Amino acid sequence: MAIKSVIQAVRTAIFYVVFIGQTAILAILAGISGLLFGRTPFGWAIARYWCWSNPLILRFLTGVGTQVEGAEHIPPGGCIIASKHQSDWDIFATFPHTGRPAFIAKKELMRIPFFGWAARSLDCIEIDRQRGAQAIPEMIRQAREAIERGCRIVIYPEGTRRAALAPPDYRQGIVRLYSTLNVPVVPVALNSGLYWGRNSPIIWPGMAKARFLPAIEPGLAPEIFLEKLKQTIEAESDRLALEALDQGLDRPVDAKLAARIDQLHERQNRQMPGNS
């Protein structure tokens, strides 16, 4: 495994050079276009190319495949897409299935020259996480305007990338959006963190999967909605992780991940009929 790890580390380094280099060039092109002309078909064409090319580059250089299922669950018209978030893969893998997405992005990203200009031209919604709950009204205002433009709001309910199988940490921003916008919410489960982990120096080969799930109807009480969203995403993400584990992980498993895998199996055993 040591030699394989070294080889995979080299493959990962090459991928990051290509990935970051391409992203920077495209951000400059889209950013200048957005700064001068606003939202244009040219900017969207760049975004679509970025999302089309990255899975191919990732597969060729690191061995990570891409599989996305369940896009038929996305309803027509305005909605919120609430996705688990474990790596950058989640962004470009699900983007092509969301129509005209408006991603909720942290303020720091929107302040990066060229990248921030490009993001604004692609309907991204800015949120200042340092302001906490005080930032939510402005986020809701931008989200409402995006819905009126025909966008689908894409939000990561936990606020940031989480390690694979880490305990969930859902925030209140998704609840406020759901209660205010009164549109369906489409949960998205995934297992990408098993291959491209948060802060991991190595991307490991395998099949990263995302699954759009049946929409949650508007109008539920906030606490009922949040619990339903969390249970839906976490249960399906557990299933995707189990599928990956059954097929075998082509990577070393450290003590922290091993403990989380044990906890996953314990959760599954408790849910089996006859177990309490």
Rank of each mutant, 00 (worst) to 15 (best):
I7L: 12
L229S: 05
P76Q: 13
P137I: 11
T40S: 09
T160N: 12
T160H: 08
I80F: 04
V253H: 03
R131E: 14
I28V: 15
R48Y: 08
S276N: 15
L58H: 11
L229N: 00
G99S: 09
P137D: 07
K84N: 03
G248F: 09
I112F: 02
I32K: 00
D128V: 12
P75V: 06
P75H: 12
I174G: 01
R267V: 01
R198D: 13
G43M: 00
C79S: 10
P168E: 12
S33T: 09
L249M: 02
R161V: 02
A30S: 10
D262T: 07
F212C: 07
Q231V: 11
A24L: 14
R161F: 11
L58S: 11
G206F: 00
P168F: 13
D246K: 15
I91N: 02
A164F: 12
Y16F: 10
L190H: 01
V6L: 14
G34A: 03
T12D: 08
F212H: 04
R211K: 15
E145N: 09
A45K: 14
M207K: 08
V183L: 03
V183C: 03
I46R: 10
I91E: 07
I155V: 10
G65S: 11
R39D: 14
R260F: 08
Q22K: 14
A241M: 06
